[in-house]
């Protein structure tokens, strides 16, 4: 059939010449190529000690942020849990008592805040939903563990280190 686009190329398969059928020249060529690779720069990144630079829109483990005075930003509004497509986030809200103003910024705070990391798909919708800019997915990747219960991260693992003054 005639080609419509007129771009069809008919590949010609010539019978191999004697040198090609010997295969040895091409084998030695291949050997030379691999041998050259021995002296090239190694691509290996020695992972735990040395880490690749991560991109700006990288989404890793969550962290609950503090404000500039070291108070937790989260007000337990539940928008992140609502936005979460994987239903990974649960929380219990509590009222801020007198004398806790240096701990929590808002009058209501999350007494319990848990993310099930086995459910989480790291989509970043909680980050977008948060009105208080309290949750960010800026951590490292999830590390392996032995028990399912160890993948439910509570506030002990999520909340940022307190500010050092």
């Amino acid at each position: 059939m005639e080609s419509l686009s007129n771009r069809k190329k008919v590949l010609e398969q010539k019978p191999m010449t004697f040198m090609e059928r010997l295969y040895l020249p091409s084998i030695f060529k291949g050997l030379a190529i691999t041998f050259r690779h021995m002296f090239k720069k190694k691509e290996t990144v020695y992972y735990p000690e040395q880490q690749r630079p991560i991109s700006e829109n990288w989404r890793g483990l969550h962290s609950l942020k503090r404000d500039e005075q070291g108070r937790e930003r989260c007000t337990a509004c539940g928008l992140c849990a609502l936005a979460c497509p994987a239903e990974a986030i649960t929380m219990t809200a509590a009222e801020r008592q007198k004398g806790e103003e240096h701990l929590y910024r808002e009058e209501k705070y999350a007494a319990v805040y848990e993310i099930n990391m086995l459910r989480c798909i790291f989509c970043g919708l909680c980050e977008e939903a948060c009105p208080k800019e309290a949750i960010y997915l800026d951590g490292p990747i999830l590390s392996a563990d032995y028990m399912r219960k160890d993948f439910i991260f509570g506030k002990d693992k999520l909340v940022e280190e307190p500010l050092k003054s």
């Binding site: 690779h37 021995m38 720069k41 190694k42 290996t44």
Partner: peptide, 8 residues
């Protein structure tokens, strides 16, 4: 194998 493939 590693050296020929650019690894360590």
């Amino acid at each position: 194998a590693a050296f020929l493939q650019g690894r360590v």
